[in-house]
Structures are given as structure tokens and as C-alpha cells.
């Protein structure tokens, strides 16, 4: 067609492949060296390995640093510090996840999510019984709590950012102090006001307690999210002759749809692992139940708690698997929120 030869697209701002391989090789060598140090000295375990790796990379940096300029040396040192700090922050999360996964994975069979504990005692083999009742109970309570809390929380956010009424200060103060309420206090409150006034612990009671804990998170995060809406959009709505509530409903809230999804997920993630308030308000059960206003109901945290207290081998194994399932749910929620949020940004 034309005489112009199209050049190969390149990325000159990236490091050369050779350099990448070299730094990768250096890191591997350092990691192996650190492992050898762990084998032959008093340092032990993963922590020892990490500490030796840090010391070795600092030494390597010092040796390499002789060739570099003052500025480059400083840069490399700060990079090492930041990378180590980031790893350090990541380690607790990784070790929690790893230990729960390792101890729980053995019990993660099909029967664990398809059957309840009605005909199984905790000491039975892991191929019998499961946590279906606890999973259903947890979901039921979280869904009821969300139905009650999300509208309330988002409306408080709207009050704080859109209406800015006379009680803004008061609402913000109450929300802030509510987020400091110990979860057991929320449980006690629902216990005295609802549970003891009706027929004892129920899913609805549990949902109320979870809702109290969820509300401040939802209100605060939705305020933050709504603050992100540029004032120009509100002005545009008003300039078209819209009333405030129409502008809020049709312009402001849809603009932060993805943010509000994240708000919901954060709220759910905040309470799905709560144990203490459910002890008082939801009780526990070994059977799959669906009635939210009658009878005690199981939940994943209480399931884990109860089995750990029994303390026998299979019971503890079941507890670990329950914890793993709970963690998978929380991660699943975050991933879903990311997906939904991403789709929104066209």
C-alpha cells in the first residue's frame, strides 16, 4: 500500500529483558542464600528466612552501591525499605490465610456445604455432616441486616453530604461514636430490647445486632463516596430546574453506583464474621432452618466457635473448614464488588 515501513512497537520506558532476568536471578540467589543461612544457623522458620533475606539484600546493595552514584544508592536503599515494609504489612494477612487454608482444606468436601449437623455429632468423620445450616443462617442474617441498614446508612450519607441540615454535626458525631461500640454491647442491646421481649434468640434478632454494627460503617463510607461527586453535577441538575431530591436520586446516587456497591460489601464484610453479638441474639442450631423470626439459628462464626470449644480432633478440623469457608465468602464479596464497580466506569 504505502512505502512507509511501520516500526515495531516498543516500550523504551520499561527495563530491558536482560536486566529483568538479571535482577530476577539476583533475587533468587539471595533467597536461596537466605535459606542456606536458615539451615545452618540459629535463625529458624519463615521469619528467620525473611530477616536473613533482608540482611543479605542490604549487603548486596552495599556491594553494588560502590558502582552507583550517591543519588542512585539512596534510591535503591529507599526502594529496599519500601519493598520490605510492604512485605511486612502483607505477611500477617498471608500467614492467616495460609494457616486457615492449610488446616481447613482437608475438610472442604461437597458434604460440608450440602448437609447440616442434624444427624452428625462433631466427632464423626469429616465425610459426614457439614455447615450448610450455618452458611444459610449467616447469609439470612446478613441479608436482613443489609435490607434494614443499607437504606438507612446511605440516607444518613445523603443527609450529611446533600441536605447538610441542622443536625449534620449531631448525626456525624453519633455515627462516629457508634462505630466505636463494642460488638457485644450491640448484642446486649438487642438482647434486652428484642430477644428477651420475644421468644428468645432468632435470626431476626441476630440481624438487628449485625445491623447496629453495620450502620456506622455504611453511613461513614457512603458519606465519603458521595463527597466524591463533583458539585458541577449537582449544579447542572439544579440549573435544569430539578428539585434537590430528584437531583440526588437521579444524578448524585447513580454517579456513584459502583462506590455504593463497595459500601454495601464493606458493610457486609464488617459483620459477617461477628461472633459475640450472635451468641446472645441468634443462638445456635445444628439443623438447617429458614424461619427468621422463630427459633435459634446457626451462623458460621458461632459454628466455628462452638466446635472449637468441643476441642476434639474432628470438631477442631470442622471449625477450621468453617473458618476457611467464611474467609472465602469475604474474599468472594470483595472480588464481586470490584467486578461490579469496574463495569460501572465506562
Amino acid at each position: 500500500m504505502s512505502g512507509i515501513s511501520i516500526p515495531q512497537p516498543t516500550r523504551p520506558w520499561q527495563r530491558k529483558r536482560r536486566e529483568q532476568i538479571r535482577s530476577g536471578a539476583t533475587f533468587t540467589a539471595m533467597a536461596i542464600l537466605a535459606f542456606i543461612v536458615v539451615l545452618f544457623t540459629g535463625f529458624a522458620g519463615f521469619d528467620g528466612w525473611a530477616i536473613s533475606l533482608f540482611i543479605i539484600s542490604a549487603i548486596v546493595l552495599l556491594i553494588k552501591g560502590r558502582k552507583l552514584s550517591q543519588k542512585e544508592r539512596k534510591n535503591a536503599f529507599i526502594q529496599l525499605l519500601i519493598a520490605s515494609a510492604a512485605t511486612l504489612a502483607f505477611l500477617p494477612w498471608l500467614s492467616i490465610f495460609a494457616s486457615v487454608a492449610m488446616k481447613g482444606i482437608a475438610g472442604l468436601r461437597i458434604n460440608f456445604i450440602t448437609s447440616d449437623m442434624r444427624t452428625t455429632v462433631p466427632d464423626d468423620e469429616m465425610n459426614m455432616g457439614g455447615a450448610l445450616h450455618a452458611i444459610v443462617g449467616s447469609f439470612m442474617m446478613v441479608i436482613i441486616a443489609s435490607i434494614i441498614t443499607l437504606p438507612l446508612g446511605i440516607l444518613s450519607g445523603v443527609y450529611l453530604t446533600e441536605i447538610k441540615g441542622r443536625f449534620t454535626f449531631l448525626v456525624r458525631f453519633v455515627v462516629q461514636s457508634m462505630s466505636g461500640v463494642p460488638s457485644i454491647v450491640a448484642g446486649l442491646f438487642v438482647f434486652t430490647t428484642y430477644v428477651s421481649a420475644t421468644h428468645g434468640p432468632t435470626a431476626f434478632g441476630g440481624a438487628l445486632a449485625l445491623g447496629i454494627l453495620m450502620l456506622p460503617t455504611v453511613a461513614r463510607t457512603s458519606e465519603e463516596v458521595l463527597k466524591l461527586v463533583p458539585d458541577e453535577l449537582r449544579s447542572a441538575g439544579y440549573a435544569l430546574g430539578a428539585r434537590q431530591w430528584r437531583t440526588t436520586l437521579m444524578v448524585v446516587l447513580p454517579t456513584v453506583r459502583s462506590g455504593l456497591t463497595t459500601v454495601a460489601v464493606l458493610g457486609v464484610a464488617r459483620v459477617i464474621g461477628e461472633t459475640a453479638p450472635l451468641l446472645l441474639t441468634a443462638g445456635s442450631s445444628t439443623a438447617l432452618r429458614f424461619n427468621p423470626i422463630h427459633g435459634q439459628i446457626a451462623s458460621l462464626p458461632i459454628y466455628v466457635f462452638g466446635l472449637l470449644q468441643i476441642g476434639t480432633e474432628y470438631a477442631v478440623n470442622r471449625a477450621w473448614t468453617g473458618a476457611l469457608v467464611l474467609m472465602i465468602f469475604v474474599f468472594g464479596l470483595f472480588i464481586t464488588a470490584r467486578k461490579v464497580g469496574g463495569k460501572d466506569k465506562r
Binding site: 458541577e232 447542572a236 439544579y238 440549573a239 435544569l240 430546574g241 447513580p254 454517579t255
Partner: peptide, 21 residues
Amino acid sequence: AAAIRLKVGMVFQKPNPFPAM
């Protein structure tokens, strides 16, 4: 005021279409 703004429209300095629409 809303009825007035319906009759007297406004275009702003910075383009501000509604991003969610």
C-alpha cells in the same frame, strides 16, 4: 426557584454531562 431554573437554563464553563447517563 426550581420553576425559575426551568425557564432560565444555564450552561456552565466546564462541560458537565451526567457521567452515569
